[in-house]
Computed example of a mutant assay.
Amino acid sequence: MGTFSLAPDQLTWCAELRALAEHDLAPLAEQGAPDRVNRPLVAALGRLGLLERLFTSGALDLCLMRESLARICTEAETALALQGLGAHPVHAYGTKEQRARWLPEVVAGRAVAAFALSEPGAGSDAAALTLRARRDGAGWRLTGEKYWISNAPEADFYTLFARTGPAPGAAGITAFLVPADRPGLSGDHLDMLAPHPIGSLVLDGVPVGEEDVLGEPGGGFRVAMRTLNLFRPSVGAFAVGMAQAALDATLAHTARREAFGGPLSDLQAVAHQVADMALGVESARLMVYAAAAAYDEGAGGVGSAGAEGAARGGTGGGDAEGVARRAAMAKLLATETAQRVVDTAVQLHGARALRSGHLLEHLYREVRAPRIYEGASEVQRAVIARELYKQQARQEASR
Rank of each mutant, 00 (worst) to 15 (best):
E321Y: 13
D296Y: 03
T164C: 11
E67C: 11
K146R: 13
T130H: 10
A155N: 06
L359P: 13
V240Y: 06
G109T: 01
E258T: 05
C14P: 03
D24W: 07
G172P: 06
S377Q: 05
Q339L: 15
A284P: 00
V223W: 02
P179H: 05
S200D: 12
V346T: 12
L17A: 12
A393G: 07
P197A: 05
L80E: 10
G2M: 14
S5L: 12
R222Q: 09
T3Y: 09
L17M: 13
T12V: 15
L62Q: 09
A122Q: 01
P207T: 04
L103F: 12
R232Q: 15
G46E: 04
L214K: 09
V112Y: 07
I72W: 03
R182S: 07
V42N: 04
L28T: 06
A382P: 02
V208E: 08
M277A: 00
A26K: 14
G94D: 00
V346P: 03
R71I: 02
A245C: 13
H196F: 15
Q273S: 08
K146E: 13
E105A: 14
A376I: 03
A224I: 06
M277D: 01
S304T: 05
F115S: 04
A293S: 13
L131D: 00
F260Y: 14
V213M: 09
Y147P: 04
V208L: 03
T3W: 11
E321P: 00
A29M: 09
A114G: 01
G236T: 07
F231T: 10
R226G: 04
R381S: 01
D125G: 03
V367G: 03
E30V: 05
D204P: 03
A59S: 15
L64R: 14
L286D: 03
R355C: 13
A328K: 01
A116G: 09
F4Q: 12
D319C: 15
Q268R: 14
G309A: 00
G350W: 05
S150P: 00
A252H: 10
I384N: 09
H253D: 09
